[in-house]
Lab assay of single mutants.
Amino acid sequence: MAAAAAAGAGPEMVRGQVFDVGPRYTNLSYIGEGAYGMVCSAYDNVNKVRVAIKKISPFEHQTYCQRTLREIKILLRFRHENIIGINDIIRAPTIEQMKDVYIVQDLMETDLYKLLKTQHLSNDHICYFLYQILRGLKYIHSANVLHRDLKPSNLLLNTTCDLKICDFGLARVADPDHDHTGFLTEYVATRWYRAPEIMLNSKGYTKSIDIWSVGCILAEMLSNRPIFPGKHYLDQLNHILGILGSPSQEDLNCIINLKARNYLLSLPHKNKVPWNRLFPNADSKALDLLDKMLTFNPHKRIEVEQALAHPYLEQYYDPSDEPIAEAPFKFDMELDDLPKEKLKELIFEETARFQPGYRS
Rank of each mutant, 00 (worst) to 15 (best):
H120L: 15
L294F: 03
P196K: 13
L69S: 07
D288K: 04
L156K: 07
T181I: 12
V51M: 04
P229M: 04
D251I: 00
L112C: 02
Y233P: 05
I56D: 09
N253P: 06
A6E: 07
D288L: 11
K73S: 13
S202L: 13
L200I: 09
H80K: 00
M98S: 02
G10D: 09
L155E: 02
K138R: 14
C40E: 03
Y131G: 02
I126N: 10
I347D: 09
V46I: 12
L335H: 10
M333A: 08
P274A: 07
N82E: 12
F183E: 10
M333H: 10
R194T: 09
R50M: 14
E186C: 05
A9Q: 13
G16P: 09
L278F: 05
L278P: 02
R359Y: 05
L116W: 04
D106Y: 14
G169C: 15
P23H: 14
I56Q: 08
G169A: 10
H239P: 11
F279R: 08
S213W: 03
G32P: 04
V188K: 08
E12C: 11
L184C: 11
R194P: 08
A260E: 06
T190F: 05
T295K: 11
M38F: 09
L237V: 00
Y358I: 13
K114A: 12
V214K: 09
G10C: 13
E250D: 13
H232E: 06
G242L: 10
L121T: 05
G22F: 11
I72N: 14
V104S: 04
K151A: 06
E322A: 15
D251Y: 15
L115V: 07
K344Q: 03
I198E: 06
K300R: 14
Y102G: 02
S202K: 09
L170R: 02
D336T: 10
Y25N: 14
S29R: 15
V14A: 12
D100R: 01
Q355T: 02
D179S: 03
W192M: 12
T181Y: 09
A9T: 07
A42K: 01
A7Y: 06
Q105S: 07
I165W: 10
A309G: 06
G136P: 01
R79L: 11
E96T: 01
V46N: 00
K114C: 13
K117N: 15
L75W: 01
T185W: 10
L28V: 05
F129K: 08
H141D: 08
K344F: 06
D44C: 06
C127R: 11
V39C: 03
K73E: 14
E186F: 03
R70F: 02
S223I: 05
S41Y: 15
F228P: 00
P247A: 09
N47P: 05
E96Q: 01
L252D: 05
G230I: 00
L290C: 04
F228H: 01
L218A: 13
M98E: 06
G85Q: 08
D288R: 06
L157Y: 12
P226H: 15
G34A: 09
F183K: 10
L289W: 06
F168I: 15
L134C: 05
I95K: 07
M293R: 06
Y25P: 06
S142G: 04
E334T: 00
Y205E: 13
K300S: 09
P247V: 03
I84M: 02
G16A: 06
E322T: 00
I302H: 10
E341P: 10
L137S: 11
K292R: 13
L264E: 02
V49P: 06
G136M: 02
F183T: 07
T181Q: 12
E349P: 01
Q132F: 08
W212Q: 11
A9M: 01
V145K: 03
V273L: 11
L222Q: 14
A325N: 01
A92G: 00
Y64H: 10
W192F: 12
N271W: 07
I133N: 15
D321W: 07
P268Y: 04
Q119V: 11
N82R: 13
R70G: 03
Q62F: 12
T118C: 08
N154K: 14
E33V: 10
R277N: 03
K73Y: 11
E322S: 02
S29V: 06
N123C: 10
I126Y: 06
L130G: 08
S142N: 01
A195G: 06
F348T: 10
K164Q: 11
